[in-house]
Write a protein that binds this DNA or RNA. Sequence first.
DNA 1: GTCTATAACCGGATAGAC
DNA 2: GTCTATCCGGTTATAGAC
Lengths: 213, 213
Amino acid sequence: MTASSQEVPTGTKTKILNAAEKLFGQHGFDATSLRDITAEAGVNLAAVNYHFQSKESLIDALIDRRLGPIKQKRLQMLEAAGPAPALEQIVEAFLAPILDHDLPTAVPLIGRVLSNPSLFLERVYKPHLGETVARFSEALEKALPGLSTEERFWRVHFMAGAMTHILALSGVLPLMEGSGGTLDRATLMARMVTFLVAGFRASADSPHILEKC
Amino acid sequence: MTASSQEVPTGTKTKILNAAEKLFGQHGFDATSLRDITAEAGVNLAAVNYHFQSKESLIDALIDRRLGPIKQKRLQMLEAAGPAPALEQIVEAFLAPILDHDLPTAVPLIGRVLSNPSLFLERVYKPHLGETVARFSEALEKALPGLSTEERFWRVHFMAGAMTHILALSGVLPLMEGSGGTLDRATLMARMVTFLVAGFRASADSPHILEKC
DNA sequence: GTCTATAACCGGATAGAC
DNA sequence: GTCTATCCGGTTATAGAC
């Protein structure tokens, strides 16, 4: 690690990361070429392969840059809530570090990363999410002792899905009718917490039976 | 429309659609070449551009093929529930036509389609989903008169997100610990309905206030 | 560390024989 | 309707000058 790896955000490496985050978030990984990225960043094409080794490694670097701090903040908020956090605190600690992201380009990128089935298990969940989910699942077990392990597993993924969808579609949802036009983060957070907390509290022992039509 | 457009599922056109659905679902649109598809289908490369005009049109044909019938089934289930359906019936009518899909390759494809921000608004939502969502939103308004339009809008998208995430990750979620190993559709449906119905019923007039840690 | 130039390859689409 | 052969543009990655 040389002095240049953490310098002010005008270095070539940082410019590449920022441009890549923006374009990957807008158009997806495969639809964005390294040429697009270097043009946006105002740097030379060969700089990508010098600072990162390949396009795939660049993607991993972007994932690291965002999911690393998010993991820290999530666990920190969960710990700050004490040894037996309330359900609302657990859900907030899960959502806030992602939804409250200050950097506007980070949100669509994180949406792409979390909703990409090709990346998810090996390059996102295992290295960056698995431990966090396990910790939150433990906290949920204390807060909701009536839920089975499977029930908890699926509800955590319902929560993750609701959040991920909003992140991924953050660019288009405000354009739709009925949304209220803007995407105010604090209000959105409150709405998600209300919805998800109620979902988690639902009694699981009334498995609804489907009937034909 | 000639006689060949709706023949037994061994025509070249159908073989291409089936192979494309499988590979697009597994690897995504950009990561799958027309050569991959024609190899999988056992047909000639040029057949794709003869039957469909371009790769983009092929994708639209795949979207049509699955989302058309789903729209019909959703509206049919909603109508069958009478003029003032219960909340459970509304949620079931929204989820069942997608989650209960018999064709195993359709589920990952639909997950890719619904979670792709680049396709979503113009090529998925407006042509195939908007009218359905409006009808379901009306039904929800009757079932839950206390909710504001914005609140309903966002909760519908929380529901859509939870469902979409499960579809998109259907290939990997069963591999994770705590899932119970299998993905039994009836049980999953029941779990989602329980969770989402409780979320919809949550009272909205207690907007939770976020505090710093 | 940064650039130019290029290698080596793969993609979608099409022309034209059959 | 189906095939072969090919065009042509774009892709990642690298070699080597500065």
